[in-house]
Write a protein that binds this DNA or RNA. Structure first.
Length: 244
DNA sequence: AACGTCTACAACCGCTGTACT
DNA sequence: GAGTACAGCGGTTGTAGACGT
């Protein structure tokens, strides 16, 4: 079977974008709007694959991007949302206007992870590091994680992930090579589950899973993907301090 | 000044989910 | 229902610049 490559790699540029390429892409999208990324490069006269154009536009060129340093409020909001959603960067980004999933992901890996460690909080479990190796009862966030983890880990490296999965030693993250290592993945929140009664103070005493997250097993309407519907439904009220 | 290491982040890669035929 | 095309997502990598020795 297999799928055709997203682009003809022999005839596409790679690496950093030039000013001219940026200008072309911006000019094209201004004139024609987003959409049909596959055909866009040719139409815009770019030697890039559509995927690359999309990434460049979304992560860098979009006019509504905020850029610049994250505020403390944004930091805290990201931490809260990560505790709820795990590595669902696109969902987290949807709550932070002007920020992209890629930007948040990078920021998490470079800043927030360390910030949490310095607070003595495990960035994976969001629990105090001393507690995090203890056996925990299933939580709203963690109770679906095992099966999906195994599936993912199986096809990557044979490294002993069972130890890593529960390990939260700070050395692992402070090692210069932590980024290159297979790290324990965050427990995923299963968005397809049915609504459960609110958990009593699961996270910092007052964080509740927004009900919108757990709904929508219904069929998507035509012309709109399930993912898009789901994303659109995850609209949280914004407050100064994050979750309201 | 030269070199090695670390950090930040842009970009790429591979995979998944959905739509369409 | 199967096969294919496409958009989008999350993980990973590459690399420029900052920093330390």
């Amino acid at each position: 079977m297999g799928r055709s490559p997203c682009c003809e790699k022999a005839h596409t540029n790679k690496g950093a974008w030039t000013k001219e390429e940026d200008d072309r892409l911006v000019a094209y999208i201004r004139a024609h709007g987003e959409g049909c990324w596959r055909s866009l490069p040719k139409a815009a006269g770019l030697l890039r694959c559509g995927k690359s154009c999309r990434l460049r536009w979304i992560n860098y060129l979009r006019p509504d991007l905020k850029r610049g340093n994250f505020t403390d409020d944004e930091d805290e909001l990201i931490i809260h949302l990560h505790a709820l959603l795990g590595n669902k960067w696109s969902l987290i980004a949807a709550r932070l206007p002007g920020r992209t999933d890629n930007e948040i992901k990078n920021y998490w890996n470079t800043h927030i992870r360390r910030k949490l460690l310095s607070r003595g909080v495990d960035p994976v479990t969001h629990r105090p590091i001393a507690d995090s190796t203890e056996k925990k009862p299933p939580s709203a966030i963690g109770f679906m994680s095992n099966q999906t983890e195994v599936k993912k880990e199986d096809k990557t490296t044979p490294t002993p992930t069972t130890t890593a999965a529960t390990s939260s030693s700070s050395e692992e993250y402070e090692s210069p090579t932590w980024r290159r290592q297979r790290k324990p993945k965050l427990p995923d929140l299963n968005l397809e589950l049915c609504i459960a009664p609110p958990f009593p103070s699961q996270l910092e005493g007052e964080m509740l899973v927004p009900s919108a997250l757990a709904v929508s097993n219904s069929k998507p309407s035509r012309g709109r993907t399930m993912m898009q519907q789901q994303r659109a439904s995850v609209v949280y009220p914004v407050s100064q301090n994050g979750i309201t």
